[in-house]
Computed example of a mutant assay.
Amino acid sequence: MKTIVLIRHAKSSWDHDVSDLNRPLSKRGFTDANLVSKAFKSYNFNPDAIYSSPANRALTTCSIFMENLNISKELLGIDHKLYDFGGNQVRRFIKSLNDDLEKVIIFGHNHAFTSLANSFGDADIDNLPTSGLVMIEFNVDQWQQVSQGETKLFLKPKDFK
């Protein structure tokens, strides 16, 4: 059994003259990431690995989740393939994961994450909002075999406001 948790980065701020890669979170982004991560804590999900896009907004969201979930920084990997908006690079990344890993969390971007949540999962998700989280389980033993799974969880910030 393989389980993937896709988490879209929290709301970013456009108030800074920085590159897309360096854009920080907005105040709402910090609030929403804390809301969703604290709600997710009650599910007692213990990942074998966490991966993030190198974008500042994704890494900051990842840090908030890791802190609130008490996850060791040793589990974190940063990969440029996750700085993907279409989804093909993320899909290849997931299918190339080490088969020793059973539960993985990935932090990244839209449209890629909404697209993957719909193609991998069995729920119809119109849009994975910022700070949104989708958990999908696959009844396979190898990541390469991941195709259609079961959407087990869909959390969004507005559920907790």
Rank of each mutant, 00 (worst) to 15 (best):
N98P: 10
Q145D: 12
H111T: 08
T151A: 03
Q145W: 04
N56G: 00
F85H: 11
N34G: 13
H111S: 12
A10C: 04
Q145M: 06
V90M: 13
R57N: 04
Q148C: 03
R91A: 10
L59Q: 14
V140C: 14
N139K: 11
E67S: 14
L116V: 09
F93W: 06
T114M: 07
N110K: 03
V90G: 04
F113K: 02
S115P: 00
P47N: 14
K158E: 11
I94K: 10
D141T: 07
D48A: 13
V146Q: 02
D124G: 06
K27V: 15
K103G: 03
L21E: 09
I106Q: 02
G132L: 05
F45A: 05
D20E: 14
K152W: 02
K161N: 07
N34R: 14
L97F: 10
D141F: 03
R91Q: 09
I125S: 00
E102L: 09
T130Q: 10
V5N: 02
L35R: 15
L101C: 09
L25P: 05
K73C: 02
V5A: 04
A117N: 03
N98G: 05
H16R: 11
A39T: 13
I64G: 11
F40Y: 12
T3F: 01
A33D: 08
I78Q: 11
K156F: 09
D32V: 01
H80V: 01
I7Y: 10
P24S: 12
F120S: 05
S52H: 09
I106H: 12
G77T: 12
I136T: 08
V134Y: 00
T60Q: 15
N44S: 14
L116W: 05
K156A: 06
D124P: 00
S115K: 15
I125N: 00
T151Y: 01
R92I: 08
N88L: 10
L101A: 04
S12F: 11
D79G: 08
N70L: 06
L35P: 00
K27T: 15
